[in-house]
Amino acid sequence: MGPGGVDGRGAVSEPGGAAAARSELEDAARRAEARRGFLIALPAWFYLTLFFVIPLGIVAVYSFATRSSTGRTVLSDWNFDSYRRLWDSLVVEIALRTLLLALATTLICLMFAYPLAYYMATRRPALRNVLLILVMIPFWSNFLVRTYAWKVLLGSDGPVSQLSQALGGEPIRLLFTNTAVIIGLVYGFLPFMVLPLYTALERMDWSLVEAARDLYADGWTAFRKVTWPLSIPGVVAGSILVFIPTLGAYVTPAILGGAKTTLAGDYIVSQFLAARNQPFGSALSMGMMLIMLAATIVYFRWFRPSGRDL
């Protein structure tokens, strides 16, 4: 820590003139440090301003513009029409369906990930690492390919349907339904839930559980009073990591969903590629961003994240 170190060494009492000269020197050194830091930060700053902040501004501006009859965006005649359309019953329906699907995905992930993370965290260290790698591999492999695998599995002549027919049942037609989308989303985002839960449980002081048992708590009580409260940061982190990307999911519904399962992500994309209504699409994007920023801020304010990256 550059400047901090200088401060520490300078805090020695000296005769007036020398101390003043020294503090002036320190000020100059600190200013030079700050300038150097700023210069090192500058390239990324410049890049993100040009290719992130300005594009964000353009979307904000477009959301107040008008769509001409030919589908062009007219950058004059500013209005709130696109925002008013956000309350159309179709938009509200899509928003609710997206929220519901994201919520269901998060809960299902939690239901399976928690016991898995618990199991992993309570194994011998060597086995623990093998299991961790087994979770990491799907986490790192191509998302599109993993989603496509489910299209192969769930198709009308795919293995799932064939298996059901071989067992004397009906052919199962899951593809292009909400169920297929939820399966795909759970599959895609489950590792995001397992990893923070595992981190929380693995770091937990298990002697606390032992203490609870010594005080005659049964297994369930010990879990409810000790383990669960201590794992809450992992639960919250995992839920946010699943919930937020699911809200904006586009690839999964596009591959596994059908015409009746439009989600927010599809809907925004269709405004730009098919409907050619950029102002409305921009307003939708702004709405989605606000919801997610709100969720993220709530998360950072209410819960202190463990600060561990994935």
Partner: peptide, 24 residues
């Protein structure tokens, strides 16, 4: 501000970032 700016591209939904860059 810089710190926050650097986190935004991670937090923001991919679809939104795609739209932003297309219009830009």
């Amino acid at each position: 501000v810089y710190d926050g700016l650097l986190y935004l591209p991670i937090i923001i939904p991919e679809v939104t970032m795609a739209v932003m860059l297309l219009l830009f």
